[in-house]
Design a binder for these strands. Structure first.
Lengths: 233, 233
DNA sequence: TCAAAAAGTTAACTCGGTTAAATCTTTGTC
DNA sequence: GACAAAGATTTAACCGAGTTAACTTTTTGA
């Protein structure tokens, strides 16, 4: 099924992404033109734009791939508690499943506890795994990449769009889990904000020179505290 | 002090803004070029960009002017409860001051009640005044304007930047009001999200044909309910 | 009245993104 | 294995946002 055609497409895609990120990290987003990237990947400009809709996406497609993760985590947790047949993660890498040492068992619907604890556990698990999305990762490349995204207005902006899409998807599944649409939208917004605030905070600390290992316990405590706010109704 | 120079500048600024909004509403954001706008306002393109940094700002400067409002409301409420000398509003049009029929008097610091009720009251007051930022306004022009902003990706995106700045400013004043920085950032995010969710919701309803007067009671109730979530810790 | 300062104009340029026509490559079929 | 249809790539030209530099006009204040 994986014909030569598709293999070549994958190759070109990777070549573009790699060339772009390398150049962005070396010279800064604004100091690199799409023509430079196309040249480095040895393709023409129109071809580049057939693979990536915008210049920003050349840096952000890794994040874009994570789209809908929050919604997926909640859905997974939901089917996990409804029937005890725990099959988590539908698309890609969403393996979390407890360990925070807290109850996630309030099975009666109408409560916001399930989703909140599910996302909290997912985040805390991300911290343990030093998942870049948590901000708690001191790998120089990861750090440089985050710096690039957060400190380049155009990238931060486009990133925000993906986050907004994530939030909308989350609101959608929460609408079914909870009763009302208003409550769902509010909670979705709070959940996404919380994650964002925590990640940014971790990133700032790590980026100031503190090692991820040193910061881990604090980050974990802060996360639990932050999500606890959303549990008290 | 208002020399001829400044008067002319104001004139040009207004001519550009007016021409831009008129054209945007008539033909859509993407169907209007900055050259069109410059021509309509009878200035050259470089001059246009001396008045407005981006094409988006030609539509959004009215929103941009509201920058830092949330922070101002909280600060005003703070000085209002610290000393009984109530002088609200530092810069522009921020006249709110109670009437929601609820206590805003918990003067002891460390509590998040003050800021939350202050912003809630401000929002509810906005509803009563049919302030466009609340989404509860069925004036055709206002409606068309909101539609333009929300449904033009480039504008929605740029708007988000202003909102983010607002949030940062709010987080800053909350950091002083509350003890910690984490709590302040989380609360600021929740507060801004809440406002945004409520406004969007109102806009959607009104935009579906329901009159602002008809929706008022519901909108008010929803707002109070939404902010109440943030009071229970 | 006059010179310095502030705006404004023109024209040319950069860069992101698009379009159309021509060319080359992969693929499935006889 | 030849070959036509489908798909991907290239070239070259184009559009529109935003910038730059050199030059002219207008406002100001002494």
């Amino acid at each position: 099924m994986t014909g030569l055609r598709d293999r070549k497409k994958q190759q070109t895609h990777d070549a573009l992404s790699q060339a772009a990120i390398e150049l962005f990290l070396k010279r800064g987003f604004d100091e690199v033109s799409v023509a430079d990237i196309a040249a480095a990947a040895e393709v023409s400009k129109p071809t580049l734009f057939k693979y990536f809709a915008t210049k920003q996406d050349l840096a952000l497609h890794r994040i874009a791939d994570h789209a809908g993760e929050a919604a997926r985590v909640v859905t997974a947790a939901q089917v996990g508690t409804q029937a005890s047949t725990g099959s988590a993660g539908s698309t890609g890498s969403t393996g979390s499943t407890g360990s925070t040492g807290s109850d996630g068992s309030t099975g009666s619907d109408g409560s916001s506890e399930g989703p909140v604890t599910a996302l909290r556990d997912h985040f805390v698990d991300g911290l343990k795994r030093r998942d870049p999305v948590t901000g708690l990762n001191d790998d120089p490349t990861v750090l440089a990449f985050h710096r690039l995204i957060f400190e380049t207005p155009a990238l931060a902006m486009r990133r925000q769009q993906f986050v907004a899409a994530d939030q909308a998807a989350l609101a959608l599944v929460l609408t079914e889990v909870l009763g009302g649409k208003l409550a769902a939208e509010l909670l979705a917004a709070d959940l996404i904000s919380t994650q964002h605030v925590l990640a940014r905070r971790n990133w700032r600390v790590v980026s100031a020179g503190i090692s991820a290992d040193t910061q881990y316990r604090t980050a974990r405590a802060e996360a639990i505290q932050a999500y606890a706010r959303l549990l008290g109704r």
